[in-house]
Every structure is written in C-alpha cells, then in structure tokens.
C-alpha cells in the first residue's frame, strides 16, 4: 500500500482532461520512486503479481508498446501484447466485439492505442477492467504528458510558472492536447507555435498563447517541446514542403538561442531529423532530454499501472 493519504479516484486513465492537481501529483510522486527502482540492478516489484496486463495496439508503436510491456513486467504482471496485424479485426470482427472477447478472458489492466479519437473511451465502456489510453487518434496521450512532466520536474523542479513552448503539428497531435491540459493544471505558461494550417481552431482558448513566429514564441522559454511532423502533412496539403517547414519551424541552434540560455529540448519521438529538429540539438549532451523522456516513460507507466490496479474491483465481484 502507498503511504500517502490521497486516494486516486479514477478507474481508468483515458486522458488528462478530468484529472486534478492531486491526481497528477500522486502519479508523478509514485513515478519518482519507480525511477529510483529502475536505476537499481534488480528492478522487480511484485505489486501486480498474478495480474494480467493486455496491451492492445491498433496502431503500430515501438516505444510506447515496449515501455508498457517493460513497465508491466517489472511490476510482476503477466503481459500479453496484441497488435492489429495479428488480431481478428482483419477478419471483420468489430472493435467492440474484440473488446468483449478480451474482456471475457478477464484481464486486469488493458492498455489501448487506436488511430481514432474516442475509440479508447468507447472500449472502456464495454469492459470491466481498468483501461489506459496509450494514444487515441488526435485526442489524448496521457502517459506521454505525465512522463514529460516527470522529466521536467526532475530536471528543473516545480512546473508552476515555467514557460513551456510546444512546437509543430499541434492540430494532429494528441501529445500536444494532453500536455496543454496537464501543464495548465500545474500552472505553467504555455506557448503554442505552429503554422496556421496546423493550429487547431480555438487553440487560443486552451489556456495558451498561440504564435506563428517561432522566434517570438520561444522567447523566455524554459522548455521547448518539439512535435513529430507526419510525413503525409508535408505533401502540399498542409505545408508546401518539409524544407519550408524546417526553415520556419525546425529547431536549430539559431532559433533555440531565442529561448532561455538554459532551456531544455524535448521530443516525444520518433524524430524526423532535419524536419522538425536538427541532429545537433536532438543529441545535445546537456540540453536535450529526449532519451531521459524514454526512461521516465517506463517509470510513469509503472506508476499508472500500480495506481489503477489498486483501484480495480475484485475479479469475482465484477458484473457480466
């Protein structure tokens, strides 16, 4: 049992929207402890011993999927990973049928990634176990925002009052939506930097300031979060070319110089080097936190899995 008094009140983690400051801080605090555990030689905890974690990935992913797998195994859970290529969806079974079938096998934790916004929410209504959103369409990716917050907190300290820029394809980014929600709760000052075609309508009402000029947007920033630009956006539909995008929005030393001299650089990966970020910045020894984000990812996912498992009803007590 955890030794703090606040009880995380949610059955699922579907998004940052709906979480309050205490919820987020509890997850970050527990994440901190798992960072320590993960740095030891023996990384095993047994809080999920005997429980089954199913990773259901309808959209391919290397880092998030393996991060959840490692997190589950380190906590002692039995981990099963299903990707869409091997599932029966190809045979015409509906998404909901797949969820009901999996549910009948009585997993305790279900991690889902899907290419459609809202799909994870839909599935969470059909199953009895705890559901964790590992990314749904262009909606939310809550564990990414939590790991980003943990990374910043461990490097800089309190997130309240920091100026944080989020740059690139905001329109199609679930990472940006989750980060804006989370950083707002923690009291950061958010700058969104993007070309107009990749800025969501109404973004100015998200509790952020919107910029099209990257240099202005980076002024005074403590952290610069770059987003991945999908290849299919660069074909003349949203942007004239990758080259033009890099010229105006690619992070290089010159543009980064407009942020604070101590500013850190982050990226959720996978990176398009030379499109949204220059290699010398991505690999910078002191300013790039990109590999550290991956490390924090495992720890925060362990924290999320443990917290939700604690809240789950006993298998025998479930309906259906």
């Amino acid at each position: 049992m955890a030794d703090f008094a606040y009880a995380f009140p949610h059955r699922h983690l579907l998004g940052i929207g709906g979480l309050n400051r205490l919820d987020i801080e509890e997850l970050l605090n527990l994440g901190d402890r798992y960072v320590e555990l993960n740095q030891r030689r023996v990384k095993h905890a047994d809080v999920l011993a005997g429980q089954t974690l199913v990773n259901l990935f309808f959209e391919s992913s290397t880092r998030t999927q393996s991060s959840f797998e490692i997190a589950g195994r380190r906590l002692g859970a039995d981990v099963v990973t299903m990707s869409v290529a091997t599932s029966s969806l190809k045979k015409g079974e509906t998404l909901v049928d797949t969820a009901m079938t999996l549910n009948a096998m009585r997993p305790d934790l279900l991690v889902i990634r899907h290419q459609s916004s809202g799909a994870v929410k839909l599935l969470s209504r059909k199953v009895d176990c705890a559901v964790i959103n590992a990314g749904d369409g262009t909606h939310e990716h809550p564990t990414q925002a939590l790991l980003d917050a943990l990374t910043i907190r461990r490097r800089i300290g309190d997130i309240g009052g920091l100026r944080i820029a989020i740059c690139g394809d905001i329109l199609h980014s679930r990472v940006a939506r989750s980060n804006v929600a989370l950083l707002n709760v923690l009291g950061a000052q958010i700058h969104l930097i993007a070309p107009r075609t990749l800025t969501p309508p109404g973004a100015a009402d998200w509790g952020a300031t919107v910029f099209t000029d990257m240099r202005k947007g980076l002024e005074g920033c403590d952290v610069v979060m770059m987003l991945r630009l999908q290849q299919e956006r660069m074909d003349g539909a949203y942007l004239p070319s990758a080259r033009e995008f890099f010229h105006f929005y690619g992070l290089d030393a010159e543009k980064l110089a407009h942020a604070k001299a101590t500013a850190f650089v982050m990226h959720p990966g996978p990176m398009n080097r030379g499109v949204e970020i220059e290699s010398s910045i991505a690999d910078h020894k002191t300013r790039s936190l990109i590999t550290e984000q991956v490390e924090m990812g495992v720890a925060i996912r362990m924290a999320v899995l443990e917290t939700l498992a604690r809240n789950a009803p006993e298998t025998g007590a479930r309906n259906r």
Binding site: P200, P201, G202, D205
Partner: peptide, 13 residues
C-alpha cells in the same frame, strides 16, 4: 461541427 470543441476532442470538423 468544426470549432474549438471538435479541436479539443481531436475530431475533424
């Protein structure tokens, strides 16, 4: 409908 609510939900409007 396109607008701020659709953008928050991550849906095409």
């Amino acid at each position: 409908n396109a607008g701020a609510f659709a953008a928050r939900l991550g849906l095409r409007g």
